[in-house]
Design a protein around this nucleic acid. Sequence first.
DNA 1: ATGACCTGTTTAACAGGA
Length: 260
Amino acid sequence: MKIATWNINGIKARINNLERWLKVAEPDIACLQEIKSVEENFPAELFEAMGYNVAVFGQKSFNGVAILSKKPFDEVIKGLPGDDTDEQARYLEAVISVDGGVIRVASIYLPNGNPVESEKYPYKLAWMERLRAHAKSRLSLEEPLILAGDYNVIPTEQDVYDASKWVDDALFLPQSRAAYQAILNLGLTSAFEASINHPYCYTFWDYQRGSWNKDHGIRIDHILLSPQAADKLETCQIDRPTRGWEKPSDHVPIWIDLAV
DNA sequence: ATGACCTGTTTAACAGGA
């Protein structure tokens, strides 16, 4: 079973690229972030015609997450628990029946946190703590759990083209990386490290400063697995070529194959 | 050249992204 995640940076602007990628990549499940659309305006019919069930947690103009799944959803949960006042659409979770049981998949758009001096950075750290608490709770279910998305965290200095340029950035600050590590420390496995684990493999290249042509990227999109999912991991790959397509997202898909 | 952006909202510039 192929499970992918992709920050598409706007469903309206990326609809052709998304359709093209779904046809060639053929994921069983695709977690999408930054759809920048409310649910009513998300073109679900297009993906339903391609054989997908569609779950959307949308927001006008900003954020917004979705999950496409060839198998139907048993359950869909919109929003990350832990703060009823949080109005940003950044977390969507679904339970899907598979041969021999269920898998639980989340599409995650973790806050960027810049500028660090603003209220956005404490929001990021608080959101990460909520994600840690929720992941801990879900891990107690002892299910195959896949937490996939744009984490907006550069885990190590081998995940960025020039670490010195990012030392003061919310994506690379020690506090951000420690909060990410605290989530891993619950017992989650990062699929990339467990599979490829080559340095300097990126999932994001800024639109500015010729970042793509100079390969000035960062690795911030991650797929974290519970032990029950990690046991079934066969591979993890990054679909780098999509960044060179016409009208690309600034992120590329990252995906896993699970023996499910 | 040492640098050069994109999306949504709205229909001129801004906010937000990373």
